[in-house]
Design a protein around this nucleic acid. Structure first.
Length: 572
DNA sequence: TTGACCACGTA
DNA sequence: CGTACGTGGTCAAC
């Protein structure tokens, strides 16, 4: 397929001790030309090229080659991320240049090529690689290029950029054999990877005073010294241990000791997990005190003052590393609490003065995704409703909560609970969708690979380890559940990223920053005067992204979109 | 020091 | 608790 796109590789030599892109060399490499020089100069040139020609940027990985560009406020519209496309095509998470190159050339990636600096090799056993040669006789990249140590001259950087273009072409050819959506998925995945760099640059706006206040309410005032911190900890412990006078030396952080303590007061439990202990809250006061203690302990250990001091910058932005896809279904991940901030702390996430948030989250995204990926016309019909469980319930002749449990049970394989009869109803009403889930489960059980709707390879063999298929029924079932979940969760992640990429492109002119991506939820930070328009753009983007992602399937996706000033507002 | 496990926050 | 993630705690093995 000829796209008519201009591909330009951007490669940046890893600087020594400086942020990527700010020192050392960089290169722009296209089919017909190349330019190298100091990174600052090359990045400025790249900025002009972006403005004039909006090429598709090719890089080994946005996290290594794009930060300089992103820091310079160039917003690349189109890119091709070799690492992300590799993950899409071949599954798993490992996607360094060595394995990406090898896989693109169909040469074995394991065992990894040995270190070339043959300190321990006998002289003459392996011909020494000429200094200017990037590709070894065995077809692998020279290892010191992969680590970046070799990328010290303009000529070498150009070779590195050429290699990136070679891989991009091979990946594109391979993708064309993976169905109509794979190429579009590659573009969206690549956009998500550069968005991750932008998310790390911008951070999530925090109202620091409010955060301090919320932490204090749970963990007490900020301790001035180590001794004060220890005293506060002892005081928190005491509020639990006072209920068990004889066992005041119990270490509440040690589950075994806690279990012993509980047994002594007549609470006999297999584990001390919250949902196990919950029913015993009224049995003995120590249970309730313990569960309250756990909550406070969580805030003080994970989301306490240390977190505030290290993860929130002097500009009051919470920053963490972002990745465009995990190793399984392909959802985005984030560190430093960006993806698991307790709801109680969310009032501290606040727009800056003069700015607002546009918050949007997809409603019932997974069943709607199931309607697309399975091609079930009857189930697609149900997605026309704002609440798809309502038409499902009426079709099954059950109450809405029953229908909901049944749909979730079908998708996730819930074994507890009594969804049995409703499940049978689902099989009759939506046989196409149910068969799709069953096939994924069966593929997982037999350890077969499968692909998501957008073309991502799901390798169920990762659970196999060295145990033969069928040797452990529990393991087989676990693979089945994993596979069934991955095709839904993975496809939902693809739709989400298509949506986000569309929003990113469509709201740039409004000065909007995407500041949080949370699987089915999106938070934009926008100048107040453009917030309403950005919100409309978010909704329009969903329609557009869903349409092309689904290939025009008659499936409706809905977003709850609102303009707010704290993340905690306007939540269901 | 490292890896396993627990526990728990989010979707 | 269906799956997925990241974090911080303890423990046993190194």
């Amino acid at each position: 397929m000829s796209t008519g796109e201009e591909l330009i590789a951007l490669v940046v030599a890893p600087g020594t001790g400086v942020p990527p892109g700010s020192g050392g060399l960089a290169a722009l490499v296209a089919d017909e030309w190349a330019q190298t020089g100091p990174a600052a100069e090359i990045l400025a040139r790249a900025g002009r090229l972006e403005a004039d020609r909006h090429p598709r940027w090719v890089w080994w990985a946005a996290s290594t080659d794009a930060p300089g560009l992103v820091r310079a406020r160039t917003r690349p519209r189109r890119c091709w991320d070799l690492a992300e496309v590799h993950r899409l095509l071949h599954g798993g998470w490992e996607a360094g240049p060595a394995v990406v190159w090898a896989e693109a050339h169909g040469i074995p990636t394991a065992p990894p090529p040995p270190p070339s600096e043959d300190l321990f090799a006998f002289a003459g056993e392996e011909p020494r690689l000429a200094d200017d040669v990037l590709v070894r006789p065995d077809g692998h990249l020279r290892p010191d290029a992969v680590t970046g140590a070799w990328l010290t001259t303009p000529e070498r950087l150009v070779a590195w950029g050429r290699a990136a273009l070679v891989v991009a072409e091979r990946q594109r050819a391979e993708l064309s054999g993976e169905g109509p959506r794979a190429l579009a998925t590659a573009h969206a995945e690549s956009a998500a990877a550069v968005l991750c760099v932008e998310l790390e640059r911008d951070g999530l706006p925090i109202d620091r005073a409010r955060a301090e206040q919320l932490i204090a309410a749970s963990a007490g005032p900020r301790p001035a010294t180590e001794e004060e911190a220890a005293a506060a900890r002892r005081e928190r412990d005491r509020l639990v241990l006072r209920h068990v006078p004889c066992r005041e030396s119990t270490d509440l952080r040690n589950p075994a000791q806690v279990r012993e303590l509980l047994a002594a007061v007549g609470v006999d439990v297999p584990t001390t997990r919250k949902w196990v202990l919950d029913p015993y809250r009224d049995t003995h006061p120590v249970v309730d005190a313990l569960l309250r203690w756990r909550k406070a302990e969580r805030v003080s250990s994970t989301y306490g003052y240390r977190w505030l001091d290290t993860a929130v910058g002097p500009d009051d932005r919470l920053r963490g590393r972002w990745t465009a896809c995990d190793g399984a279904g392909g959802r985005m991940t984030a560190e430093n609490g960006l993806h698991n901030l307790p709801v109680d702390l969310r009032p501290a996430v606040a727009a800056a003065p003069g700015w607002a948030f546009v918050r949007a989250d997809l409603g019932q995204v997974e069943p709607r995704v199931l309607a697309v990926v399975s091609g079930d016309a009857a189930f697609a019909e149900a997605t026309r409703a704002d609440d798809l469980y309502a038409p499902v319930a009426s079709r099954l002749g059950v109450e809405r909560p029953v229908a909901k449990v049944a749909v979730l049970a079908a998708m996730y394989g819930q074994r507890s609970g009594a969804a049995g009869e409703a499940l049978e109803g689902l099989e009759r009403a939506y046989p196409v969708a149910m068969a799709h889930l069953d096939r994924a489960y069966a593929a997982g059980v037999r350890g077969a690979d499968l692909r998501t709707f957008g073309g991502r390879l799901i390798r169920t063999g990762r659970f196999l380890a060295d145990r033969p298929l069928g040797s452990d029924p529990a393991l087989d079932a676990a693979r089945g559940r994993f596979a069934r979940n991955a095709i839904i969760q993975g496809a939902a992640a693809e739709l989400f990223k298509a949506w986000v990429a569309t929003v990113r492109a469509g709201t740039a002119a409004l000065g909007a920053e995407i500041v949080l991506c949370l699987h089915d939820e999106l938070l934009l930070h926008v100048p107040e005067e453009h917030a309403a328009e950005a919100a409309e753009q978010v909704d329009r983007s969903l329609g557009a992204a869903a349409h092309w992602w689904s290939g025009g399937a008659p499936v409706r996706f809905v977003s709850d979109t609102s303009v707010i000033h704290r993340w905690s507002e306007a939540k269901e």
